[in-house]
Design a protein around this nucleic acid. Sequence first.
RNA 1: GUGAGUGUAGCUCAAGGGCAGAGCACUGGUCUGUGGCUCCAGGGGUUGGGGGUUCGAAACCCCUCACUCACCCCA
Length: 433
Amino acid sequence: MIVINAPRGIKDRIPPEEDQFLALVSIAEKHLGQAGFKKVGLPIFESASLFTRSIGVETDIVEKEMYLFEDKGGERFALRPEGTASLLRLAIQHHLIEPARITRLSYQGPMFRHERPQAGRLRQFHQVGAEILGTITPQDNIDLLVVIDSISRELKLPGTTLFINNMGCSRCRPVFRKALVEYLETHQSGLCTTCKKRTETNPLRVLDCKVEQCQPVIERAPSIIDFLCESSRLHHEAVCSGLRSLSIPFTVNPRLVRGLDYYTETTFEFVSDALGSQSTWAAGGQYDGLIGQLEGPDVPGAGFAIGVERLALLAEKAGTLMPAHSHTQDISILPLGELAVPIVQSLIREIRNEGISATGIFGTTKIKQGFKQAERDGSRFLLILGEDEMARREIVVKDLLTGEQTPFPLSPLAGLIGYIRSVRSQEKISQLS
RNA sequence: GUGAGUGUAGCUCAAGGGCAGAGCACUGGUCUGUGGCUCCAGGGGUUGGGGGUUCGAAACCCCUCACUCACCCCA
């Protein structure tokens, strides 16, 4: 027999990682809630066609990274590679989109892409995402950036740059695309083999190529910003001036091309130089045609997703990850002798009902091992119930931090409960200061 | 999908052809119902797996698997 390990690219979270991870998710959710986003629960898998129709058939995500499977009825499903398509499906199905109004929804959970894992890249990773649906203004794009920026500030994320671009709209993007293709066709000799192919299939992606050979061609390529129509240009300028007046620093990057086909107008990426080569920790943008493309009302939307594992890497570097508490449990209780066992069991239940965490130590009657187990439990207190204590109808409470030892009556328990609570609240106060 | 690097005790790592080791962790004792510190002792390994070279392989060669990083791509 061979031991079974987690599948490649899956990150197990062992204590205290999971607590830190969930704390990070709830910090992000707190900021989203303050910005008026209502949470939705999205399924882990969807009809495969949802993603091919939204993300784009030519993209790597759809072409080679989806986890596809058939159920017993022969239906084709995919583990979701991203949240936006799924959220839009939900919003359309339940008629949550009011064209004349704004709907703000957020989601959180694992996403799946079959890629080679590396630093900051997993096959199962988590995103916290948000979408604004309805009549999108530049101010909505700015608000998305404000939310991400406030999360970044709370966590004091190191080395972050915000890159902004505008992909144009349904009118001006084709004009730019045509100009770009013409330019690329006359400069084929300067391009790498994949970019030669991309000239046909997905010319905008050439701008994002990092191959050394392509850089001179890319640098002299036409810039989307120069091709924006009047309304897109105003949109772009409104976003930029809005960010300036909010003192949110940013860099316009006309070569910023997102990997999903549906983006129009504003797109953005938050990049940190404190990550490895997978340096984008949050990204998003506007999508004018996508909702209509999924047979919903023909209105735009805009949104973003944060990569929680990447956020965790940054928060750890910043020292703002929730600290691993020294005491994760309030008390451990050690019964000494058969007679003490049932008393301890009912005691545990009573104590837990008071909102105090407690476990019993039933595997040993050696007091020394009891202490060691209490430490492993992460308990602040060890309660000992032996024959002497039972004779006196008492239980001994040992504070493992101070070494202080106090007997309390077994009934009523109020004295013991009050004592634990007072020490615990002092502990919390000292942690805050 | 491609490339490079690394796989030795639960963890971090030594040993670079000649007896497989240390620190931490774990168990017991010192200390019979009072932990953390000290000191002492102990359990733990087919050196990722398979094959080859050799009198002899953890080490050298081949294959394979896994992990890591990078390309690609992206959160």
